[in-house]
């Protein structure tokens, strides 16, 4: 028990090198296989891990759409990775289309990419630099968070 507490305390002061995103391949909602390398932005890539049953995720999408449209020309690409499992995956395409998501939506039915990156919450926004390194992680979405995302993108573009 004591050792356990020591371990926990040590983790809380730990800092290790940034994580890297591998060139994963997933199908998009139109059944085309897409790879991360094909979709990534020349400067930054924002990956949104979401699910149709997650209310804050759906709420974030129109805001992400706006940011995407504003920064697309500056070398920032967006990728939506739906982590819907077998239970809700059939709703990803109709919901994405009705929300008029402008960026590609990929299906990760096993949440494989999300678990590889040790992400635990929905939604999780991840910003990846041109070297495929994760430079920013943001969990959850409450109104006002869109400002944080813009600030971070601006900072990283400098």
């Amino acid at each position: 028990m004591r050792a356990l507490i020591i371990v926990v305390m040590l983790f809380s002061i730990l800092n290790v090198s940034a994580q890297q995103v591998r060139n994963f391949k997933l199908k998009d909602i139109e059944n085309n296989t897409q790879s991360f390398t094909q979709l990534k932005g020349s400067k930054l890539t924002v990956i949104d891990f979401w699910a149709t049953w997650c209310k804050p995720c759906v709420k974030a999408i129109p805001e992400l759409n706006k940011i995407y449209e504003a920064y697309k020309i500056k070398g920032v690409e967006f990728i939506g990775v739906s982590c819907d499992g077998p239970r809700s995956v059939s709703k990803v395409a109709p919901l994405s289309k009705t929300l008029q998501i402008k960026y590609p939506i990929l299906l990760d039915i096993n949440s494989e990419i999300k678990s590889e990156l040790n992400l635990n919450a929905f939604p999780t926004l991840v910003i990846v630099n041109s070297n495929n390194k994760i430079v920013w992680v943001h969990e959850g979405f409450v109104s006002g968070d869109q400002k944080l995302v813009i600030e971070e993108i601006e900072k990283l573009l400098k």
Partner: peptide
């Protein structure tokens, strides 16, 4: 260093 310390602790646990 930190990492090594932690791993030693894990091993002992």
């Amino acid at each position: 260093l930190k990492l090594i310390v932690i791993l030693v602790v894990i091993l002992s646990v």
